[in-house]
Amino acid sequence: MRSGFPVAVPGMTVGLLGGSFDPAHAGHVHITDMALRRFGLDRVWWLVSPGNPLKPRGPAPLAERIAQARRILDDPRVVVTGLEADLGTRMTADTISALRRLYPQVRFVWLMGADNLVQFHRWDRWQEIAAQVPIGVIARPGWRMPARFSIAARRLADARIPERDARLLPLAMPPAWVLINVPLNGLSSSAIRAARRKDPEAGRS
């Protein structure tokens, strides 16, 4: 294993939560905690991306976002990484392929909020992603119904696992996905950035 990469033992189940985390906030922590509980995961790795191809504005420097994310976490099961920068990947399909090669005996689950499922069909090689790893979708305020009727949800309808069987997701053969309802947290990075533009000291410790 490369120096600086997270340690994972054979058979471990690891959730992958990708995003710009610009900035990371309590909403990210909330969905991570729900994913650990509901999917029975051993670990969650935050993949702090160099940049999001679907977002027109560039994020804050990577090292700054990683450091801020680590400050808000208090769970040894969650690891904040810059793996995409380390791997030299920008697209999720490439990142997952690289991680599966590096950790062939680890069971990965891709995690996303319900809002991302709505636009999942716009992701580069999204069907390849679904064919590589199970996908755990966590409800977000206002997005549960749109997610259920999204293009990706309709095309993957036969691969959907009932919510009552969510803990079986890490062991499922992809394509497989489940949408879980959880207590909702309305925080978003975009709202925090907007508040900071109005008040540069807002949200800073």
Rank of each mutant, 00 (worst) to 15 (best):
Q119H: 14
D165H: 15
D115V: 05
V80L: 10
R77S: 13
A157D: 14
R144H: 03
S205E: 11
A60K: 03
M1C: 11
S188L: 08
D124P: 01
L47Y: 01
T89A: 11
A147P: 01
V137A: 05
A152E: 02
S97D: 09
R196E: 15
F5D: 10
S205P: 10
S188G: 10
L179C: 05
W143E: 10
D86N: 15
A85K: 15
L54I: 02
V79M: 09
R155F: 02
P134G: 12
V106A: 01
D74R: 14
S97T: 11
V80W: 04
G4K: 14
N185T: 14
R100K: 12
P183Q: 07
L168I: 08
L156V: 09
Q132I: 06
L87V: 10
R140T: 08
A60G: 05
D165K: 10
F21H: 00
L184I: 13
R196W: 13
L73M: 13
R71K: 12
Q127P: 04
A166M: 13
I96Q: 04
S20M: 06
G82I: 07
T89L: 09
G27R: 12
L187V: 12
P162G: 11
M112C: 09
A153E: 00
Q127C: 09
N185W: 07
V14A: 03
E163W: 11
R90D: 03
P59H: 08
P162E: 15
I192E: 08
K55S: 02
